[in-house]
């Protein structure tokens, strides 16, 4: 069996604020995840804004050093003791699609120069071959090479640039793509094309994905596993369809209830808002002050993982 993704006791602490109002944020607070499989898998990572999803992705991509713990991706140790730097091999194993495409490309370089660099350096293609490969990758996301060539990032729309990022990640045929909100700026009609492209890559090239998203419907549609994060912690992890059809953690339930439907309209009451950073420091369950079911134990103790009969992990005192 291959370890597609594994994290052990992963922590990342950031400090935030000025000298006088300094606070610590546990962007990752004891994250334990394990996905082993012989088949390629798509793992979705969903959850609150600011819950540490991008931080986790960056640890896996070796862009952020965790404060503690270890991480492994496609049998490569990427964080923790014994990590070896092996650059090119790493790039053919793991490729990123960054959350904000405008930050992913420098505004002083043409976008196609990135594509070329990836094709020539990582794939070791000649220039001619590189252009062919690039045209093909761009076509698969609905773009034409001629419309991309020679243009700078600010000459693209958000969705176009996002599709260029997707195309760039496809070039090296990596074993796993870490896709941080790869379709957030793409409209419905093209979004499904990109999502189906991910499924096709999984089927035809054995590519695995870590798919970070706020779009729970596409997560349901493509993923095998799903992890739900809340304030630095995993709250629920398991088979995607089971978790999303029968959520067990109260936060997962709240998430699913908040999806804007096109069939019925919301009741107009504003949910109370909490001050986020305080909750990062709770000793109990981080969700307790918003949880309709909270009891004393939830305020006092961090919930341990409970493994349910369908193999899913839930971090909640009230789930048996």
């Amino acid at each position: 069996m291959r370890t597609v993704l594994k994290t052990e006791k992963l922590h990342k602490v950031y400090t935030l604020g000025s000298l006088f109002r300094r606070i610590k944020i546990n962007a990752l607070d004891d994250v334990n995840l394990e996905v082993v499989s012989d088949q390629p898998v798509i793992v979705s990572l969903v959850g609150e804004s600011g819950s540490g999803k991008t931080t986790l992705a960056k640890v896996v991509l070796r862009l952020v050093e965790p404060s503690a713990g270890s991480a492994m991706v496609c049998d490569h140790l990427v964080a923790g003791k014994g990590t070896k730097p092996t650059k090119r091999e790493f790039l053919t194993t793991v490729q990123p699609i960054f959350q904000n495409p405008f930050e992913a490309f420098s505004s002083y370089r043409t976008v196609d120069s990135y594509l070329e660099r990836t094709a020539i350096y990582v794939n070791q293609l000649s220039r001619r071959e590189a252009i062919d490969a690039i045209s093909q990758a761009l076509a698969s996301v609905g773009l034409k090479y001629a419309d991309v060539k020679g243009k700078y990032p600010n000459q693209f729309s958000g969705g176009e640039l996002q599709r260029v990022s997707v195309a760039r990640a496809l070039l090296p045929h990596p074993k796993i793509i870490i896709a941080d909100e790869p379709v957030s700026m793409i409209d419905a009609s093209l979004r499904m094309n990109v999502i189906n492209l991910f499924l096709a890559l999984k089927r035809d090239f054995g590519t695995s994905f870590l798919y970070i998203t706020h779009d729970l419907a596409t997560a349901y549609y493509i993923s095998d596993y799903i992890a739900v994060m809340y304030r630095g912690c995993i709250v629920e992890f398991g088979q995607a369809r089971a978790v999303l059809s029968e959520p067990q953690h109260p936060y997962t339930k709240l998430l699913l209830d908040s999806i804007p439907s096109t069939r019925w309209k919301w009741e107009r009451k504003i949910a109370e808002s909490d001050i986020e950073t305080k909750e990062y420091r709770f000793t109990g369950c981080k969700f307790h002050n918003r949880c309709p079911l909270a009891q004393d134990i939830c305020r006092q103790k961090r919930p341990q993982v409970v493994r349910l009969s369908d193999g899913r992990d839930v971090y909640c005192h009230l789930v048996q």
Binding site: V46, S51, S184, L216, S258, P260, W266, R268, I270, A271
Partner: peptide, 19 residues
Amino acid sequence: EPTTALDVVVQKGILLLLM
């Protein structure tokens, strides 16, 4: 696209606030 980067819970809060 004021809420594309937000989770659906926070998005709902912001949208109701905007409304």
